[in-house]
Design a protein around this nucleic acid. Sequence first.
DNA 1: AATGTTTGCTAACAAGCGTTAGCAAGTGTA
DNA 2: TACACTTGCTAACGCTTGTTAGCAAACATT
Lengths: 195, 195
Amino acid sequence: MSPATPLRPRKAQIDRTATALFRARGFAATSMRELATELGLEAGSLYSHIKSKEEILHRVCFGLAADFFAGFDAATVGATAPLATQLRLAMEAHVRVLTRDSAASAVFLHEWRHLSEPARTEFLALRDRYEAGFRGLVQRGIAAGELHAPDAAFAVLTLLASLNWLPTWYRPDGKLTPDEIAHRLAEQLLNGMRR
Amino acid sequence: MSPATPLRPRKAQIDRTATALFRARGFAATSMRELATELGLEAGSLYSHIKSKEEILHRVCFGLAADFFAGFDAATVGATAPLATQLRLAMEAHVRVLTRDSAASAVFLHEWRHLSEPARTEFLALRDRYEAGFRGLVQRGIAAGELHAPDAAFAVLTLLASLNWLPTWYRPDGKLTPDEIAHRLAEQLLNGMRR
DNA sequence: AATGTTTGCTAACAAGCGTTAGCAAGTGTA
DNA sequence: TACACTTGCTAACGCTTGTTAGCAAACATT
């Protein structure tokens, strides 16, 4: 999901570098001077490209939210496959976003609380809406007899938690491809570990 | 697992209040003046009780590590039950620690990276050792034919991720008791969601 | 050749940071 | 009564924070 107006190259580079730092040190513990140094700039120069530190965080968080929605919609809107299959496709789409840019994903997952209002509330509303999509899938899967769980909301929390841990250990040069990871995660969560 | 030397009451109160703030705002974004205000003190007064801001974080992180090890050992050391049962007991012990103090757990899970060296490396070594305990359980469970998973390490990452998401949504006054939560989590992870 | 955009610098700002020193009141113990 | 410990204050320290103003070079477009 590319933004409506493509960012100027320097601005995009600032976003990328900032994202990596935010992930490594956290938003609050990353200074603009650190970010500038990483880019070979002076701190003040950053403000020729951006309005504020939080603007970067805002763009990363909401940009990734759009990516997640796009993946979910592609996997489920108008789908006629069994609901367990749709759930698997949605999980795989989720994993694909997480692995495509794990630094941005980590920021999306952990640093959103440094957004100030009203962005923070808007962000949480988006996240709730996304989770509700999964919840609906699981609920309909239970109703159709394809899935079972005492509580769809509880099941979805567990499911997304497993997926969202991925950015903390995923390495693009690891031995598993994103698709293999997605498949194994879906397999384990759908079928369990008990023989 | 109580500490060897019990903390003076005021010091313990500082730890508790700081833990709540670290959880809500993050370690780096919590100032000593904020913490002091929350306690009805001036900032300088805190230093009659503690040596540094990081000392608090250190105590929280390593204290909880001890709790997790104690729970795991109680569930598994010398146990003769089937390995799937031992795994379930270890998961339930883990959940019990998470729910007993979810603020401290959240700090343990997310704020440890603000520890400076060498504490940070020591902490990660402890965490690795803890995960290795689970890994061993799963590996032996697979070898005994009680469990199945293509990769024990991968399975344990997924499993702990699900459990560790708990502190972000658990509320002590929720409709499920800690034991019910532990049981459902274990159930879902061991048996999967597919009917 | 002229113009506007992009990019970057230096210098500085007000505010906030963690922490320390020195002092004093209250409390419990000998 | 004397002593030690706990608790807390005020005032300040050196430093870092995000951000702004004003200026200037490079570049593309006309």
